[in-house]
Design a protein around this nucleic acid. Structure first.
Lengths: 351, 351
DNA sequence: ATTAGCACTCTCGGCGAATGAGTGCTAACG
DNA sequence: CGTTAGCACTCATTCGCCGAGAGTGCTAAT
């Protein structure tokens, strides 16, 4: 018990930690419960299996490892992984070549949306797990221009462009036909009022206008406000994310129950829960990791999530990450997620 | 051999066909190979199992059924399903209530894109299989308006609106900064030239202009043509489709090999092969069915695809359908696909 | 033409033994 | 006192085997 480190409330001897580290690494390698003999060789300390067994019994008492059944080796628990990640693991930095290869994928992609998609593909491709990227939220997204185009019948196509070059459009049903000039007038009105203003601000003012000054407005204006309201509604909900490589998860034997997989995939297509989870990571200023149950979502019970926020000019605008089995190669995945976040941020800034 | 019907080249007795029908229906019901005893009861002809065995042996000779192993019942082959579908099956028409329930899903959806998505969800929801809908291709989609907005740096946001109210936008990198008025001028030029013309025509003329009259154009015009070219490129590729309920396929035990499922899901995310397959159905003027290998795609080997084109005013504009195991309830699925196609067509027209 | 009977084939589930990995405990060792 | 060898013990897994059951094809009788 040279340098006691607190885990839960127990002091853990340095030697025990060394074994825990070796055990987790080994288990990550081959996914099989690790026995005392194997671990004795792995640890490089030249101790007999019997000694290792004693240490492992201690680790089990502390809740850091468990054995699935009497005659199997030990497997790390969530707390075991936690301790490993927080204070034991040695990151395997990416080689310059690997980083370069990743950088390639962000080259020559016009669109921001395409960059995001690319990022999720890179993540899943390099890690062989599922990659997920939340769409960026532009803190300073300003109203730039709105336009109304008459369609057939009582329908109007509303197009909204923001200062970041996002285009939102929506078909709106109205109660009577408007002439092109009426529509133009309405658009001009809005453009004069709002151009250059923060989107959230615009939204707020529109809502207020709609409620309070209803009576005082002329009809065109009322219509305009109403229509703008509706297209903004659509624009406000860019709460979306890209997920790539979901099928990679089918390779992992520990997730192979159809039932689990199905729930997982369903969650991926619904996205809302994933998004909510990512949202919680937007505050952290570096790589953040949820192991198994820690996420709070039952369907991720056997999964871990490694996330990192991405930035433009030190301004966090989104989160990306990787979803995989609890037994994932953290020392490798962590730098991958980290680097991808930086690359994406840089790519987004460049354009 | 009362009324011989050709299958392959063999004449098949009417009684044999009756048994084939019963067998397929039974197999669709419970997914188990059907034995002679069961079939004897099922067929309602009051014949002994032994007789049925003789008939089944005939059917096997003709390649319409097979037995997985000696002591199992018989299972329909692809040709067996084919014959069943082409001349034996009795459609189970949907009740008025069911149709009404489906119609509900198409109500109050502004957007065309939303309608499409809804259609795929309805298909998967009602059939408990995967629903797929190809995006509509507007035969008469005309150029309506193009607009260029300067962004920061050497970037321009090009927005293209078609007569159908589709909005395409793309960020274009150019070689120098253009003033807003230059851009406006370029847009005006294009709008004058092309408004109201067929999109494909526009595309063609742009390409021609770009090649031949290159020299004679002034710079603005050249730029404009070039930029329009690029946004049209993006617009031309609405070759996309919505797929819903993929995970439903995990329920079917016959598809439960992880390997198969993975390939299938990968195909779903790539979409290109699915699209190609749907494309082949656009000519058929009613429900079309690919059974197992018939599709030509190995990954659909154990799957069937039931499709129907959907129309606006007798003009076919897309295809939708259902993907499920070969053993699917055709008599029920066929009308579902058929009705959904009609409902979607109607909903698209209405707006 | 139909059917009953019969021998035959094959799958599937259960049982038990052998295997082997890994453990905990105890006693000996330096 | 920490470490280690030895040993009995516990389980999961694998394999072969057996019997039950389902279904067939053939033959001979109706």
């Amino acid at each position: 018990m040279a340098t006691p480190i607190a885990s839960g409330d127990y002091p853990v001897s340095e030697r025990a930690l060394h074994f825990l580290k070796a055990l987790v690494e080994r288990y990550i390698r081959d996914g099989q419960p690790v026995g005392s003999r194997t671990l004795a060789k792995d640890a490089g300390l030249d101790l007999s299996p019997a000694t290792v067994r004693n240490v492992m019994a201690d680790l089990e008492d502390m809740g850091l490892v468990v054995s699935p059944h009497t005659s199997a080796g030990r497997v790390p628990t969530v707390s075991g992984y936690r301790l490993f990640i927080d204070s034991l693991l040695t990151i395997k930095p990416l080689t310059e070549g690997e980083v370069e290869a990743m950088r390639q994928h962000f080259q020559h992609l016009g669109d921001a949306a395409r960059l995001i998609e690319s990022a999720s593909q890179v993540l899943s491709g390099v890690t062989h797990m599922a990659g997920v990227v939340m769409l960026p939220r532009h803190e300073r997204n300003a109203f730039r221009q709105i336009e109304f185009l008459p369609l057939s019948g009582e329908r109007v196509l509303a197009i909204l462009v923001t200062s970041e070059g996002e285009v939102h459009n929506r078909v709106i049903h109205i109660d009577r036909r408007y002439t092109p000039s009426e529509l133009e007038q309405a658009a001009n009105l809005l453009n004069q009022m709002f151009t250059g203003q923060d989107m959230r601000e615009v939204r707020k003012r529109l809502l207020a206008d709609l409620k309070s000054t209803h009576a005082r407005m002329d009809e065109i204006m009322m219509r305009a406000v109403d229509m703008a309201q509706r297209v903004l509604e659509a624009a406000e909900r860019p709460d979306d994310c890209y997920i790539a490589g979901q099928t990679n998860l089918m390779e992992f034997t520990e997730l192979c129950s159809m039932e689990r997989l199905r729930q997982l995939f369903d969650a991926f297509t619904k996205k809302s829960e994933i998004l909510h989870l990512l949202d919680r990571c937007i505050e952290a200023d570096g790589v953040q990791i949820f192991i198994g149950e820690e996420s709070g979502y039952q369907l991720l019970d056997d999964c871990s999530l490694v996330t990192a926020p991405y930035r433009i000019d030190d301004q966090v605008i989104g989160v990306l990450g990787v979803i995989g089995p609890t037994r994932m190669d953290y020392p490798r995945v962590i730098p991958i997620v980290d680097v991808t976040a930086r690359l994406l941020g840089a790519a987004l800034k460049q354009q």
